[in-house]
Structures are given as C-alpha cells and as structure tokens.
C-alpha cells in the first residue's frame, strides 16, 4: 500500500526552503568549521577557485580541509565497514601460482601452574594450482600474561614455559590442521548433529560471486538441507572462512563482509584493536556460548587484520581476546612453498 507513504508526504507539514541568506550562512558555517581544522601541508596545490561564489566558498573549504585520515565521529561503524569493503573490492585480484598466508597465532590460556600464559606461534598455509597444499606451524614463545601472572611465575621459580623453541626438538614444525581438508568448509556443529560440509576446489572458490546477495545465494545452494546446522550458521561459517584462510578474490571477500554484516546476531563495531595494536572496524559474529568472534578489518584497505575470540576468561580484562590469528601476510606469488626440513606431513593434496 504505497499510498500510506505518499499520504505521510502529502499530509505532514512541509518546511520552507532555505532563503538565499540562510544558504549563504550555511556555507559560511562550513567554511568556518573548515578553518578550525589544521591547514593543508605547505606546498599543497590550492584547490579550484572558480568565479562563482559557491565555488569560492566551497573551494576554500576544500583547500583548508585535510584529507580524510580519520573517520568523522558521525560515521557509523556500518558506513566505515561499507567503505572498507568498497576499497577491498577495488583491489586487483593478484597474480601467481600460489596463494600463501602467514599468521601469528596467539593463545592466552591457563598454564599447568595455574597462572595465565600467552602462547605465540607462526603458521603458514598455502594452496597451489594443482590441488597441492602446504602448511606448518612453529611455536615461538610462551610467557606469563601480564604483570600479575609474571609475578606469580617468578615466585614459582621462573619455570621454563612450553611450547617454545627447544621444548620438543622432535616436533619443531608440524601442520596445524589436516591439509587434505584445508579447503573444506565445516559448519558449526550442534550437539548431537552431524554438521555440514562443502569441499570446493581452488578454482571454484575464485569463481564465487563478488556481490553480497549473489554470494549468499551461491553459498545457500551449498547448504545441506536436513542437517542440524541452521542456514544462518552455515552462512556465518562459510562467509568468515572466505575472508580468512582460503583463496578468494578481493571482490568475493568484500561481498562476504557485506553478507556477514546482514546475518542475524552479527554486529559491526568500529575502533577495535587486534593484539598487534592495529585498529580497525570489526565484524562481530556469534560463536558458541559467550564466545564472540571478531574479524578486525583495516579501514583503509579493507584487508583482514586479525580474527580474534573474545570471551569472559578469568584473569583477562573484559574485551581482551583469549585467542587470535594475526595476519602477517596473505596473497599470491610464484614461489613454491618449501616446508622446513624434517617437517612431516607439511605438504599434501586436498
């Protein structure tokens, strides 16, 4: 019944248009606000100042305004995300025979002696053109988390904390996941349910739609009906995997951001920091129980910075992740990944 909205438009009182004097005042206020911001860098080319008064005033604003380095306060997180997704979609798709991703893995957990420790490691995952897949993980360090736990650790005699280099010389590197299923999508399983599974090829992933609605439709086609996994859970799982640790075009990743933002229970939060201290806009996804998954996205490039889990863990300040994958590098190249010497099962096929 479209007439309801026409009715509102026709019945509700209108307001008079701004007079020329009010319009000029509005422009002057803009110019005044612009003057309150820091001036442009010396030597910056003065913007176009045409003869018309409008152009003069607005051009002056333009010359005084700094580039949009930060989001103005009124930009909603969703607008920031949409802009980031737009810039990601505009990135070139990349070229090379291998898609490779390197992450720093972080886990804040209770150690054997009862105090919180922070485990760090490096993980490599790469997919080749012929169904070949490579992956290995190396522990980097385990340290007490924060001053209080460090003090407890010292009082306990500063015992050696593992995993760390030298803790297990027979297992310095190992694949963190089953490589033959590295491209397989598993939906969140519910108790007693069988879950859902989709095993696309690399080429199929790279051909996925680059528009949110089309991507959702395509992923929905893979949704196994009759299982215990809800369609929303399936889309959450597949959408977040597409932006995390499988080859996909920038357009598909951007579409996945947009699709995820529309799913039930998903929220968008700005100014979230990853454990590396990088700030971004985050898609916050529901996970199991009180656990929340945050996909932290760079505002400027749209690239994924980190995936982190946040939950109320005793000893951790609220909002501090207890687990995170911090993206160090992700992209295409021609160099064939070479697993470290002695790394058993670190290359295979999917």
């Amino acid at each position: 019944m479209k007439s309801e909205f026409e009715f509102i438009d026709r019945v509700m009182p209108d307001v008079p248009p701004p007079t020329p004097a009010q319009l000029a005042a509005a422009r002057a206020r803009l110019a005044e606000a612009a003057r309150a911001t820091p001036p442009a860098a010396p030597g910056r080319r003065v913007m176009v100042l045409a003869a018309a008064a409008v152009v003069l005033v607005i051009g002056a604003i333009a010359a005084l305004m700094p580039p949009a380095a930060r989001q103005p306060a009124a930009a909603t997180p969703s607008q920031v995300l949409a802009a980031a997704a737009g810039r990601l979609a505009a990135q070139p798709p990349g070229a090379g025979r291998y898609w490779r991703m390197e992450t720093e893995e972080l886990l804040r957990t209770k150690g054997v002696d009862g105090y919180l420790v922070e485990e760090r490691g490096l993980d490599v995952l790469a997919f080749g053109p012929d169904g070949d897949v490579y992956g290995w993980y190396e522990a980097v360090s385990t340290t007490p988390y924060g001053a209080k736990n460090t003090e407890t650790w010292r009082r306990a005699g500063s015992p050696r904390l593992c995993p760390a280099p030298g803790c297990d010389e027979n297992l310095r590197h190992y694949p963190r996941q089953a490589l033959d299923e590295a491209l397989t999508f598993h939906a969140v399983r519910r108790p007693g349910g069988g879950g859902a599974r989709w095993a696309p090829t690399r080429a199929e992933l790279l051909a996925l739609p680059q528009e949110a609605a089309a991507l959702k439709a395509e992923l929905s086609k893979r949704y196994p009906a009759g299982g215990s996994v809800s369609r929303a859970d399936w889309l959450l799982e597949t959408g977040s995997r597409l932006v995390l640790n499988v080859p996909a075009t920038p357009g598909t990743r951007a579409a996945a951001y947009r699709m995820l933002a529309t799913l039930p229970g998903v929220s968008v939060i700005d100014d979230v920091r990853d454990p590396a201290g990088r700030a971004g806009v985050a898609l916050q996804l529901p996970a199991s129980g009180a656990d929340l998954v945050q996909l932290v996205i760079d505002r400027q490039s749209g690239d994924l910075l980190a995936v982190q889990h946040v939950a109320p863990v005793p000893g951790l300040p609220p909002g501090v992740p207890w687990s995170a994958s911090i993206i160090k590098r992700a992209g295409w190249g021609d160099a064939r990944p070479v697993p470290p010497p002695g790394c058993a099962g670190c290359a295979g096929t999917y």
Partner: peptide, 15 residues
C-alpha cells in the same frame, strides 16, 4: 550543515 561537512570529509570514502 553538519551533513555536508561530514560528507566532504568522507568524500574519499564514498563508493
């Protein structure tokens, strides 16, 4: 006025 000031600041974010 604020709408257009914000729009001007965000003009590079407009997609």
């Amino acid at each position: 006025a604020e709408t257009f000031l914000i729009a001007f600041r965000q003009r590079k974010l407009f997609d």
